[in-house]
């Protein structure tokens, strides 16, 4: 049975069926009719309905992506601007801080100089006052030396000679001695 069916399969059928069904010309007409009919229907469906829809969706997506990219570019530019502004502000702040420091420093230096000058002047005045006082005291002292010397001389004269000397003469003599010395 098995060998029979094997034979039937490998040898007989081509003859039995009368060759390839593909070469049966009687079926060509109806195949062509239905092929063109179905192909044209499919073509119209594809051309009129399917493709425009797909194309519009793809186009829309492409536009959306391009739009999004544009927006991203815009936002990036904005961020860049903000960053630049920020940096400029920071630089400005740094500069003004530097200026303030400088100003304060200068003011402090000026104050210091003024105070030093004031102190110097005060000290100089005190020194000169002191000098004047010293000079006055010295002059006074010097002035009283004559009187003391005259008194001492009068005293000495009186004691030694026992004669009261004339005050004016003594003073004259002391003066002459002092000047002579």
């Amino acid at each position: 049975m098995a060998s029979l069916s094997n034979n039937a399969m490998t040898e007989v059928p081509v003859e039995k069926q009368g060759g390839l069904p593909q070469l049966d010309f009687s079926t060509y007409e109806e195949q062509l009719v239905w092929l063109f009919l179905s192909f044209i229907v499919l073509f119209v469906v594809v051309w009129r309905f399917a493709l425009p829809k797909i194309a519009s969706v793809l186009e829309e997506r492409e536009e959306r992506i391009a739009e999004d990219l544009d927006r991203a570019e815009c936002v990036k530019a904005d961020a860049e601007t903000v960053r630049a502004t920020c940096e400029a502000a920071a630089a400005q702040a740094r500069r003004s801080a530097q200026e303030t420091i400088l100003k304060v420093k200068e003011a402090a230096a000026a104050d210091l100089a003024k105070e030093t000058a004031a102190l110097d002047a005060k000290l100089a005045k005190q020194a000169s006052d002191a000098e004047a006082k010293i000079a006055a005291v010295k002059a006074e002292a010097l002035g009283s030396v004559d009187t003391v010397a005259t008194e001492v001389a009068t005293d000495i004269v009186a004691r030694l000679s026992g004669v009261g000397a004339n005050d004016a003469d003594v003073a004259k003599a002391v003066k002459a001695v002092a000047e002579g010395a």
Binding site: M9, P13, V14, Q17, L20, P21, Q22
Partner: peptide, 8 residues
């Protein structure tokens, strides 16, 4: 037959 599948 292996050709039967092609029959119309």
């Amino acid at each position: 037959s292996p050709l039967e599948q092609f029959e119309i």
